[in-house]
């Protein structure tokens, strides 16, 4: 059974069909890339899958305890609880909060605590806080951010902010992680580091990843399977090699059929 099963997903914004009858699936621990020209509807698909926008039609189901459960109509925080996490194309950290708080706040739904015991500062409150903090710091260490725990998120360098956003997403203990253009604005060295980090996430956390990315080198190196989107429709699906040689894809990207794409 697949981890994520999306069937005939469609989203209309007024007269515009941003996502048109898209069906896709992601297996456990698979790394899938979603590519396509600007405006193809990639981010809209992320928004639909994470519940930020509601689909006009179609179904989204996630495997929970070996059963597919429908995610449509679930509140966003519930979808996060069930195991979907994401980063944003334009970084959206809690800027005035510290690096540590940015990570710990993402654990909120995973740690139950009676508000009264927090206010009364009972021992159980400190115990849970310490556990959360240890876990957050371990995560930050994996991404070379442990030295900046007490800094404000807005004071981090660009590449660090991107990494922190990934750490925050991982702190929700997802089964499926959505990365929306994680390499956008990065220099080649940062991109290489990011590529290594994404590999590490897949291996160490044993989760599936869906990636939107324009950097084809990164996509070809990481993706096990690729979906290509144009004008809201899927025009191709396959392994990186197949996609590289697919004439439809080359046409969509370059508007011609005799140009070398990759």
């Amino acid at each position: 059974m697949n981890l994520l099963e999306v069937k005939n997903l469609t989203k209309n914004f007024g007269g515009l069909t941003a996502v048109d009858d898209v069906s896709l699936h992601v297996a456990d621990q698979e790394l899938v890339a979603l590519i396509g020209p600007n405006g193809a509807g990639k981010t809209t698909i992320f928004n639909l899958l994470t519940g930020v926008n509601t689909p006009s039609s179609g179904t989204i189901s996630l495997k929970i305890d070996e059963k597919l459960q429908l995610l449509n109509q679930q509140p966003v925080s519930k979808i996060a609880d069930l195991g979907l996490a994401r980063t944003f194309q334009n970084i959206r950290l809690f800027e005035q909060m510290t690096v540590l708080d940015n990570v710990m706040v993402a654990m909120t739904s995973k740690v139950s605590e009676n508000p009264l015991s927090e206010v009364l500062r009972l021992p159980s409150f400190y115990e849970k806080e310490t556990q959360m903090k240890d876990k957050a710091i371990k995560l930050l260490e994996l991404f070379d951010l442990a030295e900046s725990v007490d800094q404000k998120a807005s004071n981090l360098a660009y590449g660090q902010q991107r990494r922190l956003e990934i750490v925050r997403a991982l702190a929700t203990e997802p089964k499926l992680l959505f990365l929306d253009e994680p390499a956008a604005g990065m220099n080649p060295r940062e991109t290489a580091e990011l590529t290594a980090s994404i590999k590490m996430i897949q291996e160490k956390f044993k989760i599936a990843i869906i990636l939107i990315e324009h950097d084809m080198k990164l996509v070809m190196e990481l993706a096990q399977r690729i979906y290509v989107l144009e004008y809201g429709r899927l025009i191709a699906e396959g392994q990186p090699k197949e996609i590289q040689n697919n004439p439809e894809v080359i046409r969509a990207y370059l508007g011609g059929d005799d140009l070398e794409l990759f």
Binding site: V52, V76, A80, D81, F88, F94, Q96, M97, V105, T172
Partner: peptide, 15 residues
């Protein structure tokens, strides 16, 4: 504090 910065992002991390 997270909700006051960005409601949608807070929601997405499960708040």
């Amino acid at each position: 504090r997270a909700v006051s910065v960005d409601q949608e992002a807070a929601n997405i991390v499960g708040i």
